[in-house]
């Protein structure tokens, strides 16, 4: 018996099991090469060939932060053209740079928020967030009076608000001045801009989600599936680092509506808030409202002990 098995094992026999593996590998490579094939396929329509060519160029483009001015312009035009080729509609993708001597900050008035969720709704529309998965950057937590324990608060309430005996407090990306999410990214796909906004290059992100694990504020969202926004609901005024359409498998987040804030406007949530609970402005401008709040109100920040230095303060009347 000793060596039935050994005998069998040592019996020579030429057969290559690995052939199946090779077959599978070829199948995978074929999928990957599909876009190239389409680009050079003489029978494909000119539009689909152009789209394939642009996708190919987009695939090999540099990290946005390291692009030259020309490369940036090219990347922006490419996105506009791609959208036109694929969906017919026109979008404008801005690459507006940070404004000198501006550092954005945000304050949230806990006394004023009443849980109407106008901010959440405006944010989703403004930022072209995936409608299918119900993604939202902002969470409004309904706390019972006398408690300040987030684990006991609800952020999925759907009863008339404000509910008796409750107060409301919103969280979103706090645009930490010392952001842990930026440190951990293995490919420098996320960084803090000079105006303090923490952004993601959706074309550079590899989707490892290390930043999501590193964020203590649940600020980051992942596209678990291809995001969907009906063409009619699409906000065509986009920014490369902001609300342009993301693809499947990348991380996104609040950008203080970079497409608006770099244009001198307030983020959509600030504009939509019916109670004036949200205050936004330039921390470097001593005349700004945000500076007045910081100077005249008793403010606090969440999880300050983690050393993240958020640019998002809470205060009460």
């Amino acid at each position: 018996m000793k060596n039935g098995l050994v005998q069998i094992l040592s019996q020579p026999m030429d057969r290559r099991t690995a052939i199946t593996v090779a077959g599978c590998a070829v199948a995978g490579a074929a999928t990957a090469a599909a876009s190239v094939a389409n680009a050079i396929n003489p029978f494909a329509s000119p539009e689909s060939r152009e789209a394939s060519r642009l996708e190919w160029q987009r695939y090999f483009q540099e990290n946005y932060r390291l692009m030259s001015e020309e490369e940036k312009t090219e990347a922006l035009l490419r996105l506009e053209r791609l959208h036109q080729l694929k969906h017919g509609g026109r979008i404008s993708v801005s690459g507006a740079e940070p404004i000198e001597k501006v550092l954005f900050g945000y304050a949230f008035n806990v006394s004023k928020c009443r849980g109407y969720l106008e901010c959440v709704s405006a944010c989703i529309r403004e930022n072209n967030q995936d409608r299918a998965s119900g993604m939202a950057y902002i969470r409004i937590h309904e706390h019972r009076n006398g408690e300040f324990d987030f684990s006991k608060a609800s952020d999925t309430f759907d009863h008339p608000v404000p509910a008796e005996g409750h107060f409301y407090l919103g969280t979103q990306c706090f645009h930490c001045q010392n952001p842990p999410c930026v440190d951990v990214c293995p490919v420098k796909a996320t960084w803090m801009e000079p105006d303090g906004i923490v952004v993601v290059d959706y074309d550079w992100c590899i989707g490892c989600r290390y930043c999501m694990a590193a964020c203590p504020y649940d600020a980051r969202r992942f596209n678990w599936q291809a995001p969907e926004v009906p063409e009619a609901d699409l906000n065509p005024n986009q920014h490369y680092l902001g609300n342009r359409m993301r693809q499947k498998g990348v991380v996104e987040k609040c950008t203080f509506c970079i497409q608006r804030s770099r244009d001198g406007r307030n983020p959509a949530c600030v504009e939509a808030c019916p109670t004036g609970a949200r205050i936004f402005g330039n921390l470097l401008d001593p005349q700004s409202e945000i500076r007045w709040v910081l100077a005249n109100k008793k403010v606090f920040r969440l999880k300050e002990d983690l050393g993240t230095d958020p640019k998002f303060w809470y205060f009460m009347d």
Binding site: A32, Y59, D183, C185, P186, V187, G207, K248
Partner: peptide, 23 residues
């Protein structure tokens, strides 16, 4: 596990932009 395996070349030293030594 990664969402964009096709973009994994971004981690390659030289080709990509590896966030070393921070990450």
């Amino acid at each position: 596990d990664v969402g964009g395996p096709a973009r994994l070349w971004h981690v390659l030293p030289g080709l990509g932009r590896m966030n070393f030594p921070r990450s």
